[in-house]
Amino acid sequence: MIYVLCLILFLVGLYGVLSQKNLIKLIIGLGIMEYAVNMFLIMVGYRKDGKAPIMESGTGLDKFLSGAVDPLPQAMVLTAIVINLAVLALAIAIAMRLYQKYGTYDITEIRRLRG
């Protein structure tokens, strides 16, 4: 099953987030996770030999439904990408500020808060 590949990619990203010590690599791990989810969404909407989901004049709703790929996951992916962009930009900004304060990207050295 091709969906399993998405799950594997998701787990690769999760492994990256959990195991890496470098802030930037952590952020890359997050990116991989999001890509895996986005790919999964696109695959959910995919249909073999499907057309692009654009309604032309003269096409009824039924014909559209039977012929085209599902447009909803595509809209969802677009939204998810925008959100992901915001999160990653914020993450990178915070990582850069952390670097200014601590002089390192290593999370094992950035540990002031405990308890």
């Binding site: 914020l90 993450a91 990582a95 002031r112």
Partner: peptide, 10 residues
């Protein structure tokens, strides 16, 4: 604050 926020964000 940055450290807490980064943890929260991840």
């Amino acid at each position: 604050e940055l450290e807490a926020s980064f943890k929260y964000l991840i």
